[in-house]
């Protein structure tokens, strides 16, 4: 698999996307394979390395955790937005040190934190290994720090490092 496709995940994603858009027929499958080969060859010219996934089993666990957190924080942010006091003095910046160094892992962490309502990724400092996030409700800062350090970071390090 890796001999033909330098980026197996990208190739698989492209094939699935093509089939979903164009319909599941044999002809479209052949075209999809062709597109996937062309795209991976194109990306190979750019010389990016494909992220290597060490432990596949941690991915469903991470996805389930993110799904649940996004659901709960949707409810929490809805309550904050519609309440009368509307975050007076409850929001603020947090600087969090992270042990994660893998670029793909950091990218996934950034996407997870930003797509969760209530937390937004702003900056990453690679020399200090610290991220700056903005939190809508700082009252839960302890829970949030614990969640990032012990759940997300641990799972991402298992997956990517």
């Amino acid at each position: 698999m890796t001999a033909i496709f330098t980026y197996p995940l990208l190739a698989l994603g492209l094939v699935v996307m093509w089939l979903l858009l164009a319909g599941f027929t044999l002809g479209q499958f052949v075209v999809a394979i062709g597109v996937a080969i062309l795209a991976t060859e194109g990306l190979k010219a750019l010389g990016e390395t494909s992220p290597r996934i060490r432990r596949w089993l941690a991915i469903p666990e991470l996805a389930g955790l993110v799904f649940r957190d996004v659901l709960w924080s949707n409810i929490a942010v809805t309550r904050i937005t519609l309440s009368q006091k509307a975050t007076k003095g409850h929001s603020g910046f947090l600087t969090i040190p992270v042990r994660l160094r893998n670029p793909s892992g950091l990218a996934v962490l950034a996407i997870v934190l930003t797509s969760t309502p209530g937390t937004a990724w702003l900056d990453y400092n690679s020399t200090q290994g610290a991220i700056i996030i903005h939190v809508l409700d700082l009252d839960d800062a302890e829970t949030l720090l614990d969640l990032i350090a012990n759940r997300y970071e641990r799972l991402l390090m298992e997956i990517f490092e």
């Binding site: 949707n74 942010v77 809805t78 937005t81 929001s91 937004a120 702003l122 903005h134």
Partner: peptide, 16 residues
């Protein structure tokens, strides 16, 4: 919401 950094959380409700 009063400041930009608080407002940046708002559209994620619509997108998640």
């Amino acid at each position: 919401l009063p400041t930009f950094y608080e407002r940046i959380h708002a559209p994620t409700l619509g997108t998640s």
